[in-house]
Design a protein around this nucleic acid. Structure first.
Length: 604
RNA sequence: GGCUCCGUAGCUCAGCUGGAUAGAGCAACUGCCUUCUAAGCAGUAGGUCUCUGGUUCGAAUCCAGACGGAGUCACCA
C-alpha cells in the first residue's frame, strides 16, 4: 500500500507546472523529517537545482506554495536550506489509519506460490549446543517466519552431523571411562553428557601425546623430522594430527571404531544409536525451550554417500576433471576461487560432495528452488564454492541458494571454546523471577519464561548477522531500555487498557476525531512502515530490522502512553479512537516479535 | 601472502539504495509513581563515525589505498 502516492503525484505536478515545463516524471523520494524540524515528511530539492537553475530555497518555496494551493493532503510546509518539510493534514493520517484497520495489515500475505527451504541449527552430535547455535537457531527460525509471513511456503530443516571420527571419540571415551553412566543416572542433559566424553577423549589423547613427545621415540622423531630451527613444542603442535592417525593407540582405536561403524558392526551401531539418542534428547529440550521446530531432518549417516552420482554426471559434462591418481576436482580459478577436490583418490566423498548431493536430494524431496543455509561465517568460502558448483552443474535451484552467514558469538572474556567446555546455554539464563502476586505458579512460570527468553532472544537477534557479537550474560537478561521485555511491556500495557475498558470486542472505530495529536500521527506513520520493514527483512534474509522496528514502535508508544490519557480521554470518540490505535500498535508489536520468534505475555 | 567480513559515545548496538546539527540503550548524574502496569517517562553529560585520498551541491554511507581485528584458503567437517 502506498500511502504517499497522492503526495508524490502532487510533487510531480508541482515541479512540472512551476519549474520544469518538459514532461519529466520524477521518481519522488521522500524522507522522514528529522525530529528537530517541523513536518512529517521531507522532500530534498537539491537534485533539482542543476536542472532548474534556481537556488534551493526558491525551488522549495515554489513547490511548497503550489502544494498549499493544490494539494489535498498538505497542511503546511517550511523550507530549510534545500529541504522542503511537509506537514500532512489530520485527514491524511485518519484515512491512513482507517486503511491500516481495514486491511489485514498484520496478517500473513497472500501466497506467492514459492517454496523456500530454510536450514538452521545443523549440529554435531559430539558437542552440546552452545551460544553460537543459539544465534543460528534464532536467526534461522526468524527468517523462516518472515519468509512465511511474506507468503512463501517454508520448509524448515537441518542436517545433523551424526557420524564420523568425532562421535567415535565420544563413544570410545564412554566405553573406556564411562562405567555405564547415562544422562539419567548422572542427571546431565544428554548432549552435554556425550559432549563431556568428547572432551574426556581429547584430554586423554593430549596426555598420551605428551608422554609420547617426552619419550625416546618422540625425541628421535623430532630430531629426524624437524624443520630447521623448529622448536620442539612447535613441531609437536604441527605433528598432532599425524600422530593421531599414525602412531596413537587411542587414535587407532577411534579409527577402528569408525571402520566398524562403516562396516555396520552390530555392537558399534548399537552404541552409536544409544549415544546419539541421548544427544537428541538434549537437543530436543533446547529446541522446546526456544520454541522452534523442524519440518524435516536429514542425518549425515544417510546422506554422507550422496553426491557421488552428481560427480559422475559432472565428469561427463566436463564440469569436473580427474587427476591421474583418480581424485576428482573442479577448477574455479576463473571465478576467483581455487581448485577444489570433490572425490578423494580412494573414491570417497569429501564434505562438499555431500553438500552437493544433499542439495540435490532436498530439491527432489521438496522442489524448493530457494534454499537458505544458516551457517556461521567461518564457512563463507565453502558456500561460495558450493553455490558456484551448483551453477556449473546447471542445477535448477542454483540461483536460489543463499548462505545466511553470521559472525561468531564471543563472551566478554573472549572467544568461546566449546571444545574446552566453556559453553553457556541461553536456557540457563532464562528463568529470572520477578513479582506477580495472586497468579498460579504455572501462570507465573509461563510469564517468566516469555520474559526471560524474550530478553535473550531480542538481545541476540537485534544485531546484524554478519557482525561478530559479544554476548554478556548479565546484559542479555536486562529488561530496561532496548530489550525484549521493554517491547513486551508496551504490549502488556495495551492489554491492560483493554481489560479495563471492556471494549475488546469492538474492532473498528465508528467515528474518527477531527484532530490528532503529534504522538498519534507519529504512531500511525510508524505503523505504515511495517510492511516495508518486513518485506526488506524477507528480501535480505535479515531479521534485525524487524527488531529495531519493534523497539522504535514500543518506544513511541511508551511515550504516547505517558503523555496522552487514553481511557480518560476528553470525549468518547477520542477514547475509542485511542484504544483502537493502541490495538493496532499492539498487533504490530506482537506480529513483529512473532517474526523474531518471541512470544508476548498478556501481563507482566 | 590471496580472498571475505568487521571497525560509529567508556560499553553494547542502530543509522549504510548518499541528504540537515551522527542516534538509541547500558553505565554516571537530575527530576517524575494518591492519576490507564515506573520492566515506564523527561532531562544532563558523553563523538576526529580507525586513518588518508577520490567521486559529489552534499559522504558514517559510494570508490581506492593504509591501519587494526576476525575468518578462510586441507584427499578435516
Amino acid at each position: 500500500m502506498e500511502f504517499y502516492s497522492i503526495l508524490k503525484n502532487d510533487l510531480n505536478s508541482a515541479i512540472r507546472e512551476t519549474l520544469l515545463k518538459e514532461h519529466v516524471s520524477l521518481d519522488i523520494q521522500l524522507n522522514e523529517t528529522k525530529k528537530e524540524f517541523e513536518g512529517h515528511t521531507t522532500f530534498v530539492v537539491f537534485p533539482l537545482v542543476k536542472q532548474v537553475g534556481k537556488a534551493p530555497e526558491v525551488i522549495g518555496e515554489t513547490i511548497g506554495k503550489w502544494l498549499m494551493e493544490n494539494s489535498t493532503v498538505v497542511a503546511s510546509y517550511n523550507v530549510v536550506k534545500g529541504f522542503l518539510n511537509i506537514s500532512l493534514k489530520d485527514s491524511f493520517w485518519i484515512e491512513a489509519f482507517a486503511k491500516i484497520q481495514e486491511e489485514t495489515y498484520f496478517s500473513q500475505r497472500k501466497s506467492t506460490g514459492e517454496k523456500v527451504l530454510v536450514e538452521y541449527s545443523s549440529p554435531n552430535t559430539n558437542k552440546p549446543l552452545h551460544l553460537g547455535h543459539i544465534r543460528n537457531i534464532l536467526l534461522g527460525w526468524s527468517v523462516s517466519k518472515i519468509l512465511q509471513f511474506e507468503g512463501n511456503e517454508v520448509i524448515t530443516t537441518q542436517v545433523i552431523n551424526d557420524r564420523g571420527i568425532a562421535i567415535c571419540k565420544s563413544m570410545l571415551a564412554w566405553k573406556k571411562w564411562g562405567n555405564g553412566a547415562t544422562p539419567a543416572s548422572s542427571g546431565i542433559k544428554g548432549d552435554h553428557f556425550v559432549g563431556d566424553y568428547y572432551v574426556k577423549f581429547e584430554q586423554e589423547f593430549v596426555k598420551e601425546y605428551q608422554v609420547f613427545a617426552e619419550s625416546e621415540a618422540g625425541a628421535k622423531l623430532f630430531e629426524s623430522q624437524k624443520k630447521e630451527n623448529q622448536e620442539q613444542s612447535e613441531f609437536f603442535k604441527a605433528f598432532k594430527n599425524k600422530y593421531f592417525n599414525e602412531i596413537s593407540p587411542l587414535g587407532a582405536e577411534a579409527r577402528q571404531m569408525l571402520l566398524d561403524w562403516e562396516a555396520g558392526d552390530e555392537n558399534t551401531i548399537q552404541l552409536w544409536k544409544q549415544m546419539n539418542g541421548w544427544v537428541y534428547d538434549g537437543f530436543d529440550k533446547t529446541y522446546e525451550t526456544l520454541g522452534v521446530s523442524f519440518d524435516s531432518v536429514y542425518y549425515e549417516s544417510d546422506t554422507y554417500l550422496l553426491g557421488k552420482k552428481v560427480v559422475d554426471e559432472g565428469l561427463t559434462k566436463n564440469v569436473f576433471y580427474r587427476e591421474p591418481d583418480s581424485s576428482v576436482w573442479i577448477n574455479l580459478e576463473d571465478a576467483g576461487m581455487d581448485k577444489k577436490i570433490v572425490l578423494r583418490s580412494d573414491g570417497t566423498s569429501v564434505y562438499i560432495t555431500q553438500d552437493i548431493g544433499t542439495a540435490k536430494k532436498r530439491y527432489e524431496d521438496f522442489g524448493a528452488k530457494k534454499m537458505i543455509y544458516t551457517v556461521a561465517d567461518e564457512q563463507d568460502y565453502h558456500f561460495k564454492v558450493l553455490f558456484e558448483i551448483a551453477k556449473r552443474l546447471e542445477e535448477p535451484y542454483a540461483e536460489g541458494l543463499f548462505h545466511l552467514s553470521y559472525g561468531m558469538v564471543d563472551l566478554p572474556t573472549g572467544r568461546m571454546k566449546s571444545r574446552e567446555g566453556t559453553v553457556v546455554e541461553a536456557k540457563e539464563n532464562a528463568g529470572e523471577r520477578g513479582e506477580l502476586a495472586h497468579m498460579s505458579h504455572e501462570e507465573q512460570e509461563d510469564i517468566f519464561s516469555k520474559i526471560g527468553l524474550g530478553a535473550i532472544k531480542f538481545f541476540i537477534i537485534k544485531v546484524q548477522p554478519q557482525k561478530r557479537m559479544i554476548f554478556d550474560p548479565k546484559e542479555s537478561v536486562d529488561m530496561q531500555g532496548a530489550t525484549g521485555p521493554y517491547i513486551q511491556n508496551a504490549f502488556v500495557r495495551i492489554q491492560s487498557l483493554f481489560r479495563k475498558s471492556e471494549t475488546e470486542q469492538q474492532t473498528k472505530v465508528l467515528s474518527f476525531p477531527e484532530t490528532l495529536n503529534e504522538g498519534e500521527k507519529t504512531l500511525i506513520q510508524l505503523l505504515m512502515t511495517f510492511p516495508e520493514v518486513v518485506a526488506a527483512a524477507a528480501k535480505q534474509y535479515e531479521p534485525s530490522g524487524v527488531a529495531n522496528y519493534a523497539y522504535a514502535l514500543a518506544k513511541e508508544f511508551h511515550k504516547y502512553y505517558h503523555e496522552t490519557r487514553i481511557l480518560g480521554a476528553e470525549s468518547e470518540t477520542l477514547k475509542t479512537f485511542r484504544l483502537q490505535l493502541s490495538k493496532e500498535v499492539a498487533l504490530a508489536l506482537k506480529t513483529s516479535l512473532y517474526l523474531l520468534g518471541i512470544n508476548m505475555p498478556d501481563r507482566m
